[in-house]
Structure formats: C-alpha cells, structure tokens
Computed example of a mutant assay.
Amino acid sequence: MSAPTFMLLGDAALTVSTSLARELHADLRVRPLPGVHESVPALNLLTVLFDPLTLDGSTLEDTLRSRLAGLHVHAPTESRTLVIPVSFGEDVGPDLAWCAAHTQRSEAAFIAALCDLTLEVAFLGFTPGFAFLTGLPAGLQMPRLDAPRERVPPGSVALGGPWAGVYPRATPGGWRIVGHTAMEFFDLSRPEPVPWQPGDRVRFEALT
C-alpha cells in the first residue's frame, strides 16, 4: 500500500489520496475531529473540510496521518444491499440492443448477466445522488457514446466504461442507457436524501 499524499485546497479543505479513503471517512464519522465540518469520499481520495479559525492544515494532516496508521482495509460493517427494480429495453433502454450485440448475447441473456451481479457503490459524484457502481466484469463494460446525449431522463440505468449507474435527475450524459427505474435517488424531503453510501451493495432486478 503506497503512502498517503496530502494537498491543501485553499485554507479550509485538505485532500488525502489513499487507498484507505473509505475507511478514514468512516473513522471520522465515528470519531469526529474538532474543527472538521465534513469529509467527502471519492475513489481513493478524501476531501476534509475544516474551520481554519480553529484548525490549521498542518495540524490536521498530522492527525490524519496518525489515524491512517491505525486503519486497515476491511469490508464495511454497515453496508446495505439495495435492490433496484428495472424496466429494460424498448423506449426506456435505447442502448440495450447495442450493448447485447456488443457482448454477442441476446438481450435476455445480457439482462440476466447484469442482474446476476452484485455491484458496489464506489463513490458519489457528478450530480447529487449519482453513485458510481463498481464490479462490472470486462465482458459487460461498455464504451461510452461518441457524443453525449443532451438530456438523459431521470431513473435511467446506464453503463459507461467500468461503471454502472442510475441518473437521479435529467442531465446530459454519455453512458449507454439500458433501462429505467422508478426509484428516487435524491429527495430532500427524506431524512436521508440519498439512499446509498460508499460500500453499499447494489443489485438490479428485472421487471416483467
């Protein structure tokens, strides 16, 4: 495991590049540090937002180095499995036929292969509620579109490179759309606006 690297972003944020980013994020939630407002995980990266009037960046870096020394990679104990019902193909999955042909499968076989997988939320990003789902085998990884669509409907289930995802809202997007779900992935009226967090497991379930 490589040594972590740190970089200040202005005077109120510190990024930590480490393979233990998820574990450090979880540790900061369990054992919060005075002066730290929030930590935001990405893929092998954690951004820590802090109050520069009560905490300076060098002190925070020293503390985080100490925290990292006591952590190790492990499966999160609080991970959940989220089952997402999906309508595949036809009008809601315009790229399904292309994806199936790309893998030399029938559409039914392609759907079955995708629904047999247990994916994992690697990190959240791009737009509120969007999760980058990892775990696609090489045979189901799809090249992105040559030209992104100007509008991808909310609830679109899509594949792009090594990732799968669900668009929580209408946005431009260049991933291959294979289906649609009615689930809401960003709702500020709920106690937890976003239903998934890094480490959660995800399965797609085909609706008939």
Rank of each mutant, 00 (worst) to 15 (best):
T59R: 02
T15K: 14
V86M: 08
S2W: 01
Q197L: 03
P76K: 00
S19W: 05
T54F: 08
G89H: 00
E120I: 13
I84A: 14
G165R: 02
G173T: 15
D187E: 05
V202F: 11
A164E: 01
F50K: 02
V194R: 00
P193Y: 03
T15L: 13
Y167N: 09
R190A: 09
S2F: 05
A3I: 07
D11K: 13
P198L: 01
G155P: 03
L14T: 03
E107P: 03
L117P: 10
D95S: 07
E150S: 15
F185I: 09
A164P: 06
P32Y: 05
T134W: 06
L71R: 02
E90D: 11
A97E: 14
R176W: 03
E192H: 04
V178I: 14
L28D: 03
R169A: 04
F130D: 06
G179W: 01
G57D: 04
A112T: 15
D27K: 02
P76Q: 02
D146T: 15
D11F: 10
P94C: 09
E205P: 13
R169G: 02
T103H: 01
A13H: 12
D146R: 06
P193C: 05
G135S: 12
C99A: 12
V166G: 04
P41C: 10
F50L: 00
R149S: 15
P191G: 00
L46P: 15
H72N: 15
L207R: 11
E107V: 00
T5R: 00
C115D: 13
A147N: 14
